[in-house]
């Protein structure tokens, strides 16, 4: 009898506790920055596409929902010709972000992706590419890679010596 009354009392007290539920969508939840939500492609500090189409995200993806094709501009800079994520398959595991050597692909704290039509969950590059550096500002892959691209010749990257003069005999 006592335990019954005690339970009812405790339940009654909860009416005065701070609420855990929020009135979504009127009220938006505050999510941590590392929350794994919608996938975006970011840009480097110079505004160029960070993605170099290395295919590592696609290889890491456990549900194989990323497909892309590499291509190059006339200066040798590599970028994805198309980049497609099938969000109806995505499990938001974040392996693609872990695999990315250029910080291009990032999962951001946004989950509002519901669609009535499943076909609309297929995101192309224009849907994915954002005009921001995302979570990792300042990094520019081509500044550390050895490939020459437009605006950066051989030996102009970080920690690179100027090109070797192969005709020199000086030791």
């Amino acid at each position: 009898m006592f335990s019954l009354l005690r339970s009812m009392w405790l339940t009654f007290l909860h009416a005065f506790h701070k609420r855990e539920t929020i009135l979504y969508p009127e009220e938006k939840p505050i999510l941590p920055i590392r929350w794994r939500g919608r996938i975006v492609l970011t840009r480097d500090p110079d505004g160029g596409e960070r993605c170099v189409a290395c295919n590592l995200c696609a290889a890491a993806c456990p549900v194989d929902c990323i497909a892309l094709q590499a291509t190059e501009d006339e200066t040798g800079r590599r970028y994805p010709d198309f980049f497609r994520i099938n969000f109806s398959r995505c499990i938001f595991c974040g392996y693609c972000e872990d695999a990315c050597p250029t910080y291009a692909i990032q999962l951001i704290p946004d989950f509002e992706m519901g669609e009535y039509n499943r076909q609309h969950l297929v995101y192309e590059k224009k849907d994915l590419l954002i005009n921001s550096e995302g979570k990792y500002p300042g990094y520019n892959y081509y500044k550390v890679a050895g490939m020459a691209i437009g605006g950066k010749g051989k030996g102009e990257a970080e920690n690179e010596a100027p090109p070797v003069d192969i005709k020199s005999l000086i030791p």
Partner: peptide, 16 residues
């Protein structure tokens, strides 16, 4: 076995 993109390569035409 590392083949990637199986659920996305045709999704541009049809998600099924």
């Amino acid at each position: 076995h590392r083949f990637s993109g199986r659920t996305a390569m045709h999704a541009g035409f049809n998600v099924s």
